[in-house]
């Protein structure tokens, strides 16, 4: 299975407010509110850590989610944010990750 790496785009604005992470695409102005698990994935998206490792190390351990469920949900979340240019996805680590502050 191909490894997947994710990085936060710089063409977004993000902010934690009232315990919720809010993200807005600066390209198409779509607005997202992330739940705790999605926020954890977002904050770990440094362009160098494989998504599988993020899921195993953070989602499964910290949120006590079954690996298969966690993997499926994470893939879905990443795909959705990637469609709006909020997350960048690659099959290899980003050399100079264009990472926006988490």
């Amino acid at each position: 299975m191909t490894e997947k790496y994710i990085a936060r785009s710089t063409a977004i604005a993000a902010r934690m407010l009232g315990g919720e992470m809010m993200i807005m695409s600066a390209v198409d102005s779509t607005f997202f509110t992330l739940n705790q698990v999605a926020t954890a994935i977002w904050q770990a998206a440094d362009g160098r850590t494989p998504l599988a490792e993020i899921v195993a190390r953070i989602v499964c351990e910290e949120f006590d989610v079954e690996p298969e469920v966690a993997r499926r949900d994470a893939e879905q979340f990443v795909d959705e944010l990637a469609q709006h240019g909020i997350l960048l996805v690659s099959d290899r680590p980003f050399e100079n990750p264009p990472v926006e502050a988490a």
């Binding site: 063409a11 604005a13 902010r15 407010l17 807005m24 600066a26 102005s29």
Partner: peptide
């Protein structure tokens, strides 16, 4: 304009805060 979208987003968050 990307930079302006960021400014408006920040303005909205800081107002709500």
């Amino acid at each position: 304009d990307v930079e302006l979208v960021k400014l408006v987003f920040r303005a909205a968050c800081e107002f709500v805060d």
